[in-house]
Amino acid sequence: MELRHLRYFVVLSEELHFGRAAARLHMAQPPLSQRIRDLERELGVELFHRGRGGVRLTEAGALLLEHTRPVLDGVDRAREAMRRILPGTAGTLRAGIPPDTAPEVLRTIAARFAAQAPDVLLELHEVSTDEQIAQLREGTLDVGIVRHPSDTVGLESGPVLSRRLGVVLPAEHRLAGSELVRLRDLHGVPLVVFRREMAPRLYDHILAICRDNGFLPGAIRHARNPNFTHGLVLAGMGVHFNEEHPLPAGLTWRPLDEDRLRWSSSVVWVPTRANDVIAGFAAAAEEALRAAGHSLSIVD
């Protein structure tokens, strides 16, 4: 049983309307409905009566609400207590960062944010796009850097900055000497990519572009850690799309012929929690991405 599902349950119990509850939680209605059904299946009871007359708590739902509110209140008090003992008179900022963020981007974010908000402790968490969005909505993250396309309904976003992707190949690959690699020339080659659940819309977007260009991977292998990704490519078990950055010996990066293959990123946060500290982080992240070669982009 996840705390965020209990929070969703409490908000729906207070609103007794899926649309209003979803808006209050800064999420779309279908995912909220699914999470409530997941909770009901886990507990083996029906928590709400759903009918033309609206939504109302069942007896089981009323009992769960009685037990859940003290639990969530206790969690909130514990979090606040931990925030108060952290270094920095103004507390802490919890920020989500994509797992494959370049080291120089992290360094610049940390340096710029420290200069702008020296009394705030910056906690950087390695979190995928969809995990960030869920944690922002449940309040366990304050701000995040997400990849697009993604489901950011109800969240505020800074400017979208992007950088073209190329292909990471073994140095001895037949295309390693090409000035520009055509996607169709990779047809049948395995592709190493992040797991779909990390960023479903981006995952589907990448594979659709490959298909449009005549590149159907012979296999899809999943990796989250850059070292594991590079190891798979070195072993000849696939190629990998990424922006240009320093690589281990034995690997090379070549540009691709498809402008739509990009890392497009923006800082996101819950509008009702916006403050000067989040604005300072957004400015630091934008500066860091621009310094790493990212520029303004338009998300379809």
Rank of each mutant, 00 (worst) to 15 (best):
M27L: 12
G51M: 04
P271Y: 06
D76N: 10
G166E: 07
D76P: 01
S295C: 10
G177N: 11
P31N: 03
I97E: 11
E2Y: 01
L165Q: 13
M237N: 14
L124H: 00
R50K: 10
H148V: 10
E138Q: 13
R77F: 04
T108W: 04
E156A: 15
L63W: 05
A102M: 14
P271H: 03
L64G: 01
G44P: 01
F113N: 01
I36N: 02
R164M: 10
C210P: 00
V268W: 00
E66V: 03
H245E: 15
D76G: 12
G74P: 02
I278G: 01
L296N: 10
P118A: 05
V153N: 05
V55E: 11
A114R: 10
E197H: 15
A111M: 08
F9C: 06
E126N: 08
R35P: 00
V299G: 12
A95D: 03
R94E: 09
M237P: 02
G177T: 14
F281I: 05
M198K: 12
E104R: 11
V10N: 05
R211L: 14
F18Y: 08
V233S: 08
N227D: 15
L247K: 03
T108C: 11
P99D: 11
P271L: 10
E286Q: 09
G88V: 05
L64D: 01
P226K: 00
G218I: 09
S33I: 14
S128T: 15
R184E: 11
A284I: 12
M237R: 15
L296K: 02
E123P: 07
R52W: 01
Y203R: 05
E138D: 15
P118C: 11
D38N: 14
L183M: 02
D76E: 14
L296T: 13
T68W: 00
L39H: 00
S297D: 15
V270L: 13
G139T: 07
A284N: 07
E40L: 09
I145H: 02
F281R: 00
H222C: 08
P30R: 00
L169Y: 07
R20Y: 00
L16A: 08
R211A: 15
R224G: 11
G238N: 05
E258I: 11
L169V: 06
D212K: 09
R262Y: 08
I209Q: 11
L180D: 09
A95R: 01
G188A: 10
R273I: 06
P255F: 04
A171L: 13
W263R: 06
H240R: 02
L191Y: 03
P217I: 13
F194K: 08
V146H: 03
E66R: 04
P149S: 13
N275D: 15
A249L: 09
A279V: 14
